[in-house]
Design a protein around this nucleic acid. Structure first.
Lengths: 213, 213
DNA sequence: TAGATTGTTAATCGATTAACAATC
DNA sequence: TAGATTGTTAATCGATTAACAATC
């Protein structure tokens, strides 16, 4: 379950459907058509149907989908039921922002703890999540059976943090530090550069403004 | 001139090339091959050549590219020379993290100011950037001729902020609030959900772990 | 029944990869 | 010259969109 192959693009849209469905005024067992969802979110109707086909038990021609069961299907698929636990290393601005972000729950992910080497930070809680000294990273990952680690430390510390995570049994790393991490083949790494979407937007705008002239 | 059509994927790789080139020990006029870059970054060599063809004046067969002029070409293309100014609305954790992020410069983008409705925040500077009361958003955007606005406020305030940005002359909005913004056709909006890449990573991991069994 | 809607199959589009000719 | 490397053209791959048959 929830292991089928879904493209990144589709995965990005699923919570949008979920949000929209939840925001609908629901008078009992209401139905909703893919066309209506598509229009509300500015997508193509066929695309919505294709996406929903991956997660739902299907709609009825002429009627559409049952909103409640569609919500249930989406939540199940996205892992609402049993959330995956992750830890974050680095409780600076970025770490705090991620700890306070509520959107992970929509994908069945929970950040359960943070680690930082600054003694002033460890011992605290941030947004209700405990902050531990980074020395305990490996031990606690093992004990809590953490599979996903988030690296939000400066570039110079990232490799050491990655090593500790891997030693602690972490199998996937979301890396915000601008470095190529070396790691065992079996560990997944996803590098993130938050500037990219803004750069894309900026280029799109530049292109558009240039067209006018 | 920096307005050509470049895919998001390519745009994402260009700063990687730049970082790698800059990190190379440079003994005078060194050359570098696309193959070497590809290997260092874990990419295909043809892909690197295709990407570089979009920004550079070309390499020499057998020799490769001149590292210095490649760096210059990349910087020019990415807009190092004349940075685009942006403002951010909302100086909470996310706003602070973005204000402190150095990676925007790599794409020729500078966040020049923040706005917040909390009087305790406005008047301050965060990471060297001034924070103004949100009431002055429209006026200052106009005066500074800001084209790009970043929305990092709670969902309930996002539409009002968007309206003020548009009134202030902003032409592109990077929106972190989980709402569909209504806006004039001429304004570009890019919605961002920072949870998506982590969700993708989590799915990839789940799929991989499931294969084993 | 007629018409709206689903779901599937085919066409299109864009990006990546492979093959290969050009060149220093 | 020979071999490494560039750059281009063709093939592949995946995602989106269009067309259409099935169905309630």
């Amino acid at each position: 379950m929830s292991v089928q192959s879904v493209s990144k693009q589709t995965l990005q849209r699923l919570p949008q459907y979920l949000n929209f469905l939840k925001s609908m005024p629901r008078a009992g067992a209401a139905n909703i058509s893919a066309t209506a969802i598509a229009e509300a979110l500015g997508l193509g109707d066929v695309q919505v149907r294709k996406d929903l086909a991956l997660v739902s038990s299907g709609g009825r021609p002429k009627v559409g989908y049952d909103a409640d069961s569609l919500i249930a299907d989406l939540e199940r698929f996205l892992g609402y039921d049993d959330a995956t636990s992750a830890v974050i290393v680095g409780a600076g601005d970025l770490g705090r922002a991620l700890l306070g972000y509520h959107g992970f729950a929509a994908y069945g992910i929970e950040i359960v703890a943070a680690f930082d080497h600054d003694p002033a930070r460890s011992g605290q809680t941030i947004h209700g999540k405990p902050v531990f000294p980074v020395e305990r990273l490996q031990e606690l990952c093992k004990r809590m059976q953490i599979r996903i680690g988030i690296i939000a430390v400066p570039a110079g510390e990232a490799q050491a943090v990655c090593d500790a995570l891997v030693e602690g049994g972490v199998r996937a790393v979301w890396n915000f530090a601008p470095v190529m991490l070396s790691k065992p083949e079996s560990v997944l790494v996803q590098n993130e550069d938050i500037a990219v979407p803004l750069a894309v937007l900026s280029k799109r705008l530049a292109r558009k403004l240039a067209e006018r002239e």
